[in-house]
Simulated scan of single mutants.
Amino acid sequence: MFTVAVREIKWLGMKIMKMVAHIVVLVLFSITSSLVFAYDPSPLQDICVADDKSDVLVNGFVCKDIKEVTAQDFFYYGLDKPGNTGNKVGSIVTTVNVDQIPGLNTLGISLVRIDYAPNGQNPPHTHPRGTEILTVIEGTLYVGFVLSNQNNNTLITKTLNKGDVFVFPIGLIHFQANIGHTPAIAIAALSSQNAGVITIADSVFGSMPPISDDILAKAFQVDKKVIDLLQAQFSVKP
């Protein structure tokens, strides 16, 4: 009888240990999932209007006192006006993020308008904190993004016309080019209040201080004179 009781206790103990192990795995999965997907701070209240006058440093912005919140904190005007595309790349991005609309703080979304001159482009770049979904308002765009090294840097491209929609996954290098003979316009939403942007050529050849031309020459498999020429081109900030 005593032996049977001991066996039952051991069996029960093993079941409890398995249950605990499963719970630990689920907890760890939940934690890692939240770390993976929570690029922006999640809202814990109805609104958290950014207080840009606060000296407190947090991931995002400190909330303004709700008694001081007005409709203006959720408003922006002027997105109907075309931007000046008279630059070297022939495009201009008008950003509407938490810096323009403080009410976007913790809401995980922002907006841009992109104007393209004929033959203009929004050169290869990446958004480290947001996926982009773009809609063509006017014109014809050739767009694409590049998959990571593990997927052989495969290029995914599409020609878009008025009303077409295309998605650029978070973190991947992407671009748009106006292949029409008239100006083009696009509106894009991003899954972050501040998705950030890293323009590849500007970052690689125009960093301050500059990346060593020895490093870049080896990385791009070209002569250092080519790198020096490119760095001279991109070191002049607009």
Rank of each mutant, 00 (worst) to 15 (best):
D55Q: 13
D51W: 05
F220R: 00
I66G: 06
I31T: 03
V236T: 15
T94R: 11
A177C: 03
G90A: 10
P169K: 09
A186F: 06
L28N: 08
V36T: 10
T154N: 04
T3L: 06
N161C: 06
S42M: 01
M1G: 04
R129H: 15
S34C: 09
A50W: 06
F61K: 10
A186I: 07
K88H: 09
A5V: 09
V136N: 07
S191G: 05
V89A: 07
G78R: 03
F75C: 06
L28H: 02
I133F: 13
I179C: 08
E132S: 02
V136G: 11
G108K: 05
S203W: 09
T182A: 14
T182N: 11
A186D: 11
L57K: 14
S235P: 10
Q193L: 00
L230I: 01
D202T: 07
L141S: 04
L160W: 12
P209H: 02
Q100I: 14
C48Y: 07
G78I: 12
D202E: 14
E8V: 03
P169L: 04
I9W: 03
G60N: 12
F74M: 03
V136H: 05
G13A: 04
Q72A: 14
F61P: 07
V204A: 05
Q72S: 12
K158G: 10
V236S: 12
T199C: 00
F168E: 04
F205Y: 02
V236R: 15
Q193C: 02
Q150K: 14
F37C: 04
F220S: 00
I170D: 05
P82W: 08
S235L: 08
N149T: 12
S203R: 03
A21F: 01
I16K: 06
T32A: 09
L155A: 15
I16L: 12
K10L: 00
G144C: 14
A50P: 08
L147Y: 08
P169Q: 13
V146W: 01
D40F: 00
L160K: 08
D65T: 01
Y116I: 13
T95G: 09
L35W: 12
P118E: 11
V4H: 00
A189G: 06
S33T: 05
K81R: 14
D213C: 07
N59P: 05
P169S: 05
S42G: 06
T126W: 14
S34W: 01
L134D: 15
N151L: 14
N149E: 15
D65Y: 10
Q72Y: 08
I133R: 08
A50E: 00
L107M: 13
V136W: 07
V236Q: 15
G86N: 13
